[in-house]
């Protein structure tokens, strides 16, 4: 009784300490999001304009965006580039996780490998985009030199002129920057699995592959779903690399949705309204993806919450009993 009274008297500090977060969120996140949505229904375009005039046909911008072949292409590019980076990324990350967590056959130098695999992730993506642009230079560039030195190609290749090649390179950069990150997350997931399960598998004589497929993989399900959805959300935002590598080129082959939005709003004829409409489509995709993640993660949390409630109820009942006996 005494405790409850006390916590009530301090409750106002919960509100007070949350004020900075809430105020800043409302001003710098929520308001701009609503503002963006509103702009999607106006005729706002041209540098320096800020006035709001609603269109007679409110969905004109959305219709125009869906008819815009560049936008459609940017959506499919984003999906293609993401897929081509994610599949090898998860395969390599799983493979490395299996190797590094294999209890029978320990690899040496794991710390150094982790250090190196994760390294590209921390470096400025803008710098990496331009670095790869220089590495794949034609006719004289490091990659061309390397391929000719190793005898793989006889004459220099013009990598950045062909759509699929350019897209593959963007996917590769994304893969290269992120597989180490994914590997660390998966390894943390393995570390979280009850070690006695592995021990009993070992005693039962399960091979490394058997242990991986029948114990490690099923137990990583939730974490892999987390990796999948967060990677999709990240892929949706892909901007720095495609923007600075080839600015969406050649022939829009590396144009992602984010680059499309940026180019609509901040170059050419400054079509803020069209860009805002495209942003809202992206927003909806992001909400759906986060919703999916919530759905995947829900089970565990709910179960935990239920358990906690049950325990609290028991505790209360026990306390009431004790209190009763004292009185």
């Amino acid at each position: 009784m005494k405790r409850r009274k006390k916590s009530v008297s301090y409750a106002k500090y919960g509100y007070i300490f949350s004020i900075p977060f809430v105020v800043v969120f409302l001003i710098f996140s929520l308001y701009p999001t609503i503002y963006t949505a509103v702009i999607g229904f106006t005729d706002l375009k041209g540098l320096g304009r800020t006035d709001i005039n609603f269109l007679e046909d409110p969905f004109l911008n959305f219709k125009a965006i869906f008819k815009n072949p560049s936008f459609i292409k940017s959506l499919s590019n984003t999906a293609i580039i993401w897929l081509m980076n994610f599949i090898p990324q998860i395969v390599i990350a799983l493979l490395l996780t299996a190797w590094f967590t294999n209890r029978r056959n320990k690899l040496k130098g794991q710390g150094a490998f982790k250090f190196l695999f994760y390294m590209p992730n921390i470096m400025t993506a803008a710098t990496i985009a331009i670095l790869f642009n220089s590495l794949f230079a034609y006719p004289k560039g490091p990659v061309n030199d390397l391929l000719m030195m190793l005898g793989i190609s006889e004459k220099p290749i013009e990598f950045l002129r062909e759509g699929w090649t350019a897209r593959n390179i963007v996917s590769f950069i994304q893969f290269w920057m992120w597989y180490g990150h994914t590997m660390i997350i998966l390894m943390a997931g393995v570390a979280g699995i009850d070690p006695t399960i592995f021990e009993s598998a070992e005693i039962d004589g399960a091979s490394g592959a058997q242990t991986f497929f029948h114990i490690t993989l099923p137990n990583l399900r939730t974490i892999m779903l987390y990796v999948l959805v967060t990677s999709m959300l990240g892929g949706l935002q892909m901007f720095d690399i495609p923007k600075l590598f080839l600015n969406g080129g050649p022939d829009n082959a590396t144009l992602t949705t984010s680059v499309f939005i940026y180019n609509q709003a901040f170059s050419g004829s400054y079509m803020y309204n069209r860009a805002a409409a495209a942003s809202m489509i992206m927003f909806i995709i992001a909400v759906v993806l986060s919703g999916l993640l919530f759905y995947f993660m829900r089970d565990e949390d709910e179960v935990k919450l239920k358990k906690e409630k049950k325990r609290a109820r028991k505790e209360q009942a026990r306390r009431a009993k004790e209190g009763g006996s004292v009185v």
Binding site: F28, S29, Y31, P32, T33, I34, Y35, T36, A37, V38, I39, Q237, F239, S258, I261, Y262, A265, F266, Y272, A275, A276, S279, M280, M282, F283, A286
Partner: peptide, 8 residues
Amino acid sequence: QVSGIGFY
């Protein structure tokens, strides 16, 4: 990024 236009 989705609120970039409104933010600007």
